[in-house]
């Protein structure tokens, strides 16, 4: 390998030596590296000119030839120097314009058509989830689970005020006032007990048949007058927001099949004694028509609808 040495150019070292023989080459940098360095300097200067860069006390350089125009939610055109917030607002504006088309369809077509069109219904579902979380979930809980006795469960198929699209839209638009009078003075303890027994018998609980018969007489007679709203069969009346007492859903009384007849009777008695006074506000002024339609579609779908 003698030729190898003769052809190798002499290399300068820094002159330092460690551990006796460790030396550091002092090779020149390639010229292109220097150019690349100058290029980054030029880039930085151009950046300073175009983008916000230098702090000036309470102010800063805004950047030249680089403005962003966006529209605010109330339709004003705003032109500002380059900044990420304005870019975000402009992107949001573009996204709104994209949604506009599908929102117009949602506003115009009948509900059945939304349900039949998977693209429309998927969009409505996604959008309604957000609307519901923002406006409805405070009372009805996320997913419409409700709170027994206070806020109806929207995820089941029992509809106090009717479960058709029109009825649900009516409910959201104008609100509802749920009312059942207190029977604490009208009925004595024994009568309360009998009525509660009768109500439990309606949905198939094993109860004392004699007490249930007495309770039925109060329910359907002048003493109680429950049938005015709950009907003689106990199936309820959506025009009054009166619950169906014959099904398995308990929207107010905390009745559980495993709790035992006595405990359940107490739960029903508590409701009859106190009555119900609850209110859902009207949303017509707070949500626009399209939003109400989207929410109607969503709530209808939650429990399977009617």
């Amino acid at each position: 390998m003698s030729s190898k040495e003769t052809h190798k150019p002499a290399v300068q070292t820094t002159g330092h030596a460690w551990d006796g023989d460790l030396q550091e080459f002092n090779n020149p940098l390639p010229r292109w590296w220097l150019w690349a360095f100058y290029a980054t300097v030029v880039f930085a200067v151009i950046y300073w000119v175009i983008y916000p860069a230098w702090p000036l006390g309470r102010d800063y350089t805004k950047g030249l030839f680089n403005t962003i125009t966006y529209e605010t939610s109330d339709g004003r055109q705003v032109e500002t120097h380059w900044n990420t917030r304005a870019r975000f607002l402009r992107e949001m504006q573009a996204a709104r314009a994209k949604q506009e088309q599908i929102l117009q369809r949602l506003a115009g077509v009948p509900y059945q058509e939304i349900a039949a069109d998977r693209e429309l219904s998927a969009f409505a579902y996604s959008m309604a989830k957000v609307l519901f979380a923002d406006n409805c979930a405070a009372c009805h809980q996320s997913g419409g689970a409700g709170v027994a006795g206070l806020y109806p469960n929207l995820a089941d198929d029992a509809w106090l005020w009717g479960g058709t699209y029109a009825e649900i839209e009516q409910t959201i638009r104008n609100g509802r006032r749920g009312f059942m009078p207190s029977f604490a003075r009208a009925l004595d303890e024994q009568q309360l007990d009998d009525v509660a027994t009768f109500v439990l018998s309606l949905s198939g609980f094993e109860v004392d048949p004699e007490a249930a018969r007495r309770g039925g007489a109060i329910f359907n007679g002048q003493a109680g007058g429950c049938y005015y709203c709950h009907t003689h069969e106990g199936t309820g009346m959506t025009s009054q927001g009166a619950a169906n007492l014959t099904d398995a859903v308990w929207t107010v009384a905390r009745v559980q099949a495993t709790a035992g007849v006595e405990a359940n009777k107490e739960a029903v008695k508590a409701v009859i004694r106190k009555g119900i006074q609850r209110e859902m506000p009207a949303w017509a002024g707070r949500l626009d028509d399209t939003e109400i339609r989207i929410l109607t579609f969503y709530v209808h779908q939650l429990g399977g609808g009617q």
Binding site: G143, A145, N153, A155, D157, D247, A248, G304
Partner: peptide, 18 residues
């Protein structure tokens, strides 16, 4: 699975998951 509510009772006594 929709976990909120994870299960609801229907009027005919059945249980529903979404």
């Amino acid at each position: 699975q929709v976990r909120q509510p994870i299960s609801v009772t229907l009027s005919d006594g059945r249980e529903q998951n979404r």
